[in-house]
Design a protein around this nucleic acid. Sequence first.
DNA 1: GTAAAAAATTGACAGTGTTCATTCAATGCG
DNA 2: CGCATTGAATGAACACTGTCAATTTTTTAC
Lengths: 210, 210
Amino acid sequence: MARPALTEDEISDFRERLCEVATRRFVEFGDAGVSLRGLALELGCSPTTPYRYFRDKDEILAAVRARAFDRLAHFAAPFAGPDGDPLSQLEALGFAYLRFAREEPHAYRMAFELSQPEASAYPELLQSRQKAWQMIYRAVRRAVVAGALAGDANVVSHLFWAGMHGLAALHLGGQLESLPIEKLQKPMVRALLRGALPSVGPTTGDTPDA
Amino acid sequence: MARPALTEDEISDFRERLCEVATRRFVEFGDAGVSLRGLALELGCSPTTPYRYFRDKDEILAAVRARAFDRLAHFAAPFAGPDGDPLSQLEALGFAYLRFAREEPHAYRMAFELSQPEASAYPELLQSRQKAWQMIYRAVRRAVVAGALAGDANVVSHLFWAGMHGLAALHLGGQLESLPIEKLQKPMVRALLRGALPSVGPTTGDTPDA
DNA sequence: GTAAAAAATTGACAGTGTTCATTCAATGCG
DNA sequence: CGCATTGAATGAACACTGTCAATTTTTTAC
């Protein structure tokens, strides 16, 4: 004899719609656009309505970030597949990663720069990040098991990710003025891959000369 | 017949003191600690007094960031000198860069993560960043002119910086869980340097096989 | 139609950056 | 010394923000 609670679908629908609006407003107005009142204005609801669907604003940001990671994973997926020469595929994946950062800078910034000290408290976010991360890891591991790269796949893939992210972060931070990222991405990918070529030597440097 | 205006020294003294307090409060309380009212509490002045010494809070953040870059430059300076083997020095510089990010994470985060869309509007900030950047550039260029590295010094130094920053950013962002940064820094430095060794080939890859 | 329960809204609170009118303080002159 | 003048510092206020509590609206079953 009472009003029924919200369906699981209704909840996820509202959350999805709010995340889309938040993303668009982030692109248009920056950080200032994702205020609860700003979102409510565009959603046509009260500023406190989202509190029934999210615990607080941090959970909203985590959901938005998770969707940004999802798009990154989706963007990189075609180049992480099991077909083609492993090294060429890995190189293409690096280019795709940086193309995503260039073409969807807002998504990349939301994924990596939205300040969230306690990001590990949101399983959805961790899972989406893991999904994006595995695009890189699988491609690297495939090259390793195929003998095209040497060293620990976990180490090499982390190096690969860090190199790509370093370029993307400096680019998006406007710190690459004298040299555009287009001139740096190929040398970076090549350097990181060459550093793990089996003919050159293992990546876990144990040559005692430091 | 009037009160004399503030001395240049008085102005810079107050600015310096405010920046120190802001830095300490950022370390202790995070972003929430650098509010105007929080700073005023510790400075023993009114929340609006800083407005005579800074245009707005963005200018305060720019000054804080500039001092963080200064510390990074000071930290890396001993390894960018003209003495010693160029490659060993460059490697040591890379380690020093990452040690700074590890030992002074707050300074590094302030330098690179404090959200400032219009950072290029603050000459002091640009100059301090340039100072830190030149620690890297000079070390790389020295290795290039000595014949220890090949390729354009500008390209190689940007790659070096991006690689270091990528590791530092992922580390500080808590994204390196399965693998600590200590196990990654040496492979990263070696990979980047090996990618520019003259015996291996030029860094600007022009081998047409992609 | 009415009772009950869930959803949504309104109003308020403490906090933020910032502006402006006001007060305080320090100086040179008579 | 007293005082006018001028810069420095302040307090009050405004428009925001995220968030909670009380209230109102909506939707169902009897």
